[in-house]
Simulated scan of single mutants.
Amino acid sequence: MINIKNFSFNNSIQKLRVKKPWDDVIIFILNILIAIPLFIIVHQNLIEFNWVFNLDRILLFLLIIVVIQLILRLLRTIIIICIFLYVLVLFYGSASGNYGFNSIYEDYDSMLYTMSDNPFPQDIIIAKLLPFPNKSKILAAIEYQNPKVRNFAIMATTKHFKDIKGYADYRTLIQCFAVFKEINKRWNYVSDPSDRDYIATASESLDYFSGDCDDHSILMAAAVRAIGGTPRLIHTKGHIYPEILIGSVNDLESINFLIKNVLFEKDSYKKQLHYHIDERGQVWLNLDYTAKYPGGPFMSEEILGALTLN
C-alpha cells in the first residue's frame, strides 16, 4: 500500500528541486555569498595565531568554502529553501542591528572598490581580511571609559580652542583636535623592548606621554572616543597610526579651512591635509604623531589593516 503522505511530501520536494546544471550554478553562487561574509565574521573574532603568510586565515577560508559546498550539495534538492533561509537570516541580522543586508552590501562593495582606480581605497576588503596585529590587546588598551583618560581629554578641550566661535556643527571635532594638539606636543617616542611588542594602556601612557606608534595610537583613539569622536587605527608595514572620521567631502572643505586658517594656522602653512576616503564616501583624517597639525603626511601609503572604533 502506497503511503500517501510520503508520496505527497516527496512530490513537493521534487517541485522545489532545480534542474541541472542550474543547481550547480546556484550552489556555487550561494557558496560565495555565504562564505565571504561568514569568513569576515569568524576572522574578526578569531584568536590571532600569526602564522607565516597568514596561513591560518587562508586555511580557515578554504575550510569554510569546503564545508559550505558539502552542505549545499547535500541540500541540493531543497536549494530554493536554502536561498529563502539565507535571505531570512539577513533580514533578522538587519532588524537586530547585527550582520545584515547593509553589512553584506558594504563587504561586496569593498571588493568592487578595490578593483577601481579610486586613489583612496580605504576600508577595502584586504583591510578586513588581514589580521590586525595585537588586535585583542589593543582593543583592551583603548580605555576610553577610564576616568583618567576622560579627564585628560576634557582638560585638553579647556586648554586649547575653547573660545573658537561660529563652528557649532564641528564642536566635537574641534575638541578632538584639541586632544590631538595636547598629545602630540608632549609625545616622546620610545621603542619597545627588542624581543617583543609592549602594548601600553591609554591610562599608562598618560603618566609620561612616551611610547612607540601603537602606544600613541591607543592613547589618541581612547581620548578622542572619550569625548564623542570616531577614531580608527591604520596598520601599515611596520607602523600603526590613528585617524578620525570627519564626515563627508563637503565637511572636508570646512575642516580644511578650520585647520589651516583658525586652529593650526602656523603649523599647516602651505601644507596639505592627508586623508583617506572609504567606499561609503566618509573622510578619515590622519592624526599621526609625526605631524603638528591634523592631516599630516603619511609615513606609509600601503594599508594592511584598519580597526574602526564605533
Score class of each variant (00 low, 15 high):
residue 262 V to I: 14
residue 293 Y to R: 09
residue 139 L to Q: 04
residue 192 D to K: 13
residue 174 I to Q: 07
residue 113 Y to H: 13
residue 104 I to H: 02
residue 289 Y to M: 04
residue 144 Y to G: 03
residue 166 G to A: 11
residue 302 E to S: 09
residue 133 P to W: 04
residue 46 L to Y: 04
residue 309 L to I: 15
residue 273 L to H: 11
residue 53 F to G: 01
residue 62 L to D: 11
residue 126 I to C: 05
residue 284 W to D: 02
residue 285 L to I: 01
residue 176 C to Y: 07
residue 309 L to H: 07
residue 40 I to N: 06
residue 41 I to E: 08
residue 52 V to Q: 08
residue 282 Q to E: 11
residue 263 L to R: 10
residue 157 T to V: 11
residue 103 S to C: 05
residue 53 F to N: 05
residue 25 V to E: 03
residue 103 S to I: 03
residue 65 I to R: 13
residue 109 D to F: 12
residue 142 I to T: 02
residue 19 K to P: 04
residue 173 L to M: 07
residue 63 L to G: 15
residue 27 I to M: 10
residue 150 R to G: 02
residue 179 V to L: 10
residue 64 I to L: 15
residue 102 N to Y: 14
residue 246 I to W: 12
residue 163 D to N: 10
residue 61 F to V: 08
residue 294 P to S: 00
residue 166 G to V: 05
residue 33 L to A: 11
residue 33 L to P: 00
residue 66 V to Y: 08
residue 153 A to C: 06
residue 47 I to R: 08
residue 33 L to Q: 01
residue 92 Y to C: 02
residue 267 D to M: 06
residue 13 I to V: 08
residue 228 G to N: 01
residue 280 R to Q: 14
residue 89 V to Q: 04
residue 9 F to L: 12
residue 304 L to N: 04
residue 16 L to A: 05
residue 140 A to K: 05
residue 105 Y to E: 00
residue 24 D to K: 13
residue 98 N to G: 08
residue 202 A to K: 05
residue 248 S to P: 00
residue 5 K to D: 06
residue 137 K to D: 03
residue 142 I to D: 02
residue 223 A to H: 04
residue 225 R to P: 04
residue 234 I to E: 05
residue 30 L to I: 06
residue 135 K to C: 00
residue 29 I to K: 10
residue 37 P to L: 13
residue 167 Y to H: 15
residue 125 I to A: 00
residue 184 N to H: 07
residue 104 I to C: 00
residue 238 G to P: 02
residue 234 I to A: 04
residue 249 V to I: 14
residue 197 D to Y: 07
residue 136 S to E: 12
residue 148 K to T: 06
residue 82 C to D: 07
residue 101 F to N: 03
residue 171 R to V: 09
residue 18 V to H: 13
residue 250 N to S: 02
residue 62 L to A: 14
residue 234 I to K: 02
residue 117 D to K: 13
residue 73 R to M: 11
residue 286 N to K: 11
residue 205 S to W: 02
residue 276 H to W: 10
residue 292 K to T: 01
residue 250 N to W: 00
residue 1 M to A: 14
residue 295 G to I: 03
residue 260 K to H: 12
residue 123 D to G: 10
residue 86 Y to G: 03
residue 32 I to M: 15
residue 225 R to K: 04
residue 194 S to H: 11
residue 116 S to K: 15
residue 148 K to P: 02
residue 132 F to M: 02
residue 229 G to N: 13
residue 165 K to N: 13
residue 64 I to M: 12
residue 155 M to I: 09
residue 158 T to E: 14
residue 279 E to M: 15
residue 194 S to N: 10
residue 60 L to G: 13
residue 104 I to G: 01
residue 282 Q to D: 07
residue 199 I to D: 05
residue 138 I to H: 09
residue 263 L to V: 05
residue 126 I to R: 11
residue 309 L to G: 00
residue 234 I to L: 12
residue 82 C to E: 13
residue 113 Y to A: 08
residue 99 Y to C: 08
residue 172 T to K: 15
residue 222 A to K: 06
residue 293 Y to G: 04
residue 67 V to F: 10
residue 297 P to D: 02
residue 173 L to I: 10
residue 203 S to R: 01
residue 216 H to S: 00
residue 206 L to W: 01
residue 59 L to D: 07
residue 220 M to S: 04
residue 142 I to H: 05
residue 239 H to N: 09
residue 195 D to I: 13
residue 231 P to K: 07
residue 208 Y to K: 11
residue 239 H to Q: 12
residue 261 N to P: 09
residue 164 I to M: 11
residue 69 Q to P: 05
residue 135 K to Y: 02
residue 107 D to W: 12
residue 34 I to K: 10
residue 39 F to L: 15
residue 258 L to Y: 12
residue 278 D to E: 09
